[in-house]
Write a protein that binds this DNA or RNA. Structure first.
Lengths: 216, 216
DNA sequence: TAGATTGTTAATCGATTAACAATC
DNA sequence: TAGATTGTTAATCGATTAACAATC
């Protein structure tokens, strides 16, 4: 078995992908780890180490072919396949995510939207009619669903997550304000906590402010 | 000068805050690092190390007083003060954030919403009328604005960010799909890239799937 | 006081950076 | 071939965990 790749590395991959996409848009054909290092403000050494976890994508004396590397990183992250997403909780955030066109370009296609609120029943977001939650089970059983996005109050998240796992969903993208954990280790969970991010910002901002006050 | 606290530690603080808040809701009065460790699935050692970056909040033989620790961590993250937020880009995500009541409970109050789209002009979100972007400068000059949230296309984010910095905003919470950097080192920037998070999920999900296929 | 648990130092582990031989 | 730049090993740095003396 090959050595496990750390989440620290994996977190950086989408960023490489983004910068390579920009280079591609600019028409840049090849790039060295040194040039990319300057752009991305990470060390060239880290770039080479990170990439070599997945294979040798470069060429000595030349660098990396931008198009090729872009595609390879895409494949590493599974972007060569379509992933179907359902969103459970069609409130503001759920609707915002459903409207986010960028996801579709990456191969993540929203195929269903569910909510408990009858007022939302019948409303459509980019061609997806919002369904009532009691249709969820039937839907997942009859459609290919890879990822379930949870944008609902934290009180309900755990039960819905367990239901989805038992229905065979492969991944849960959780925006509810709990750290979801599922028993099935084949199901991956990614917790996104926007208020955590805001608090981190607040800490750094407050620290700045306090330091400035101390100097005065 | 005291030793710099690493971002790794700071990222964990909101999580401690959240778990302590839950304990408080459950009526738990005191907790040891060991009990908290079991709940949070981190080592007790890490909890004690993390907290002691900011001071000794516990008591030997007793543990930590939940209420006290909760409040102290809140203060560390600056939650003892109100922070005013404006949102620039009142599309789906901007509106979703403006509707997020939880932020207000933490002391983050939305005081303004701006967009370029005239169709949104006059619409209100929880008492905040969406204003046209040409009102932004005047607004920031005449109101206390601590944090600016950018929920706009990446093409415009950099220019708006620079404008905001020159107007004296203290922090930028950026959802545009670029890594914003500002020249003023007193301004803190937090980049939130939802598609990066989705790609990380996709990587882990795809890895699972590939491993399963290899076994067959 | 005895037991429990912190605060803190020391040890370990893992991630990042530096260096350089391999090679295009 | 000479120059450039990767892939990879070795060195360093930082973060996590373990251990235990201090102390409530």
């Amino acid at each position: 078995m090959s050595k496990e790749i750390s989440q620290a590395v994996i977190r950086r991959m989408p960023r490489y992908y983004r910068y390579l996409g920009e280079l591609l848009d600019e028409g840049v054909e090849r790039i060295s780890s040194n040039e990319l290092s300057a752009r991305m403000k990470v060390t060239a050494s880290q770039i080479r180490q990170d990439l070599n976890n997945f294979g040798g994508f470069g060429q000595q004396g030349y660098g990396y072919n931008v198009q090729f590397l872009y595609e390879e990183i895409g494949k590493i992250m599974g972007l060569n396949e379509q992933h179907n997403i359902i969103i459970i909780g069609a409130g503001n955030l759920g609707q915002a995510l459903a409207n986010y066109v960028k996801f579709e370009k990456l191969g993540f296609v929203i195929v269903g939207l569910f909510d408990v609120n009858p007022e939302l029943c019948g409303k459509s977001i980019r061609g997806n009619k919002i369904e009532m939650i009691d249709k969820l089970e039937e839907f997942v059983k009859t459609h290919k669903v890879d990822i379930a996005t949870l944008t609902m109050p934290k009180e309900k998240a755990d039960a819905v997550a367990n239901q989805l796992v038992s229905l065979g969903v492969h991944a849960i993208w959780n925006f509810a304000h709990v750290d979801l954990e599922v028993l099935d280790e084949n199901v991956v969970v990614e917790n996104v906590h926007l208020s955590d991010s805001l608090m981190q910002l607040s800490y750094n901002m407050t620290k700045n402010k306090r330091e400035k006050e101390t100097l005065e």
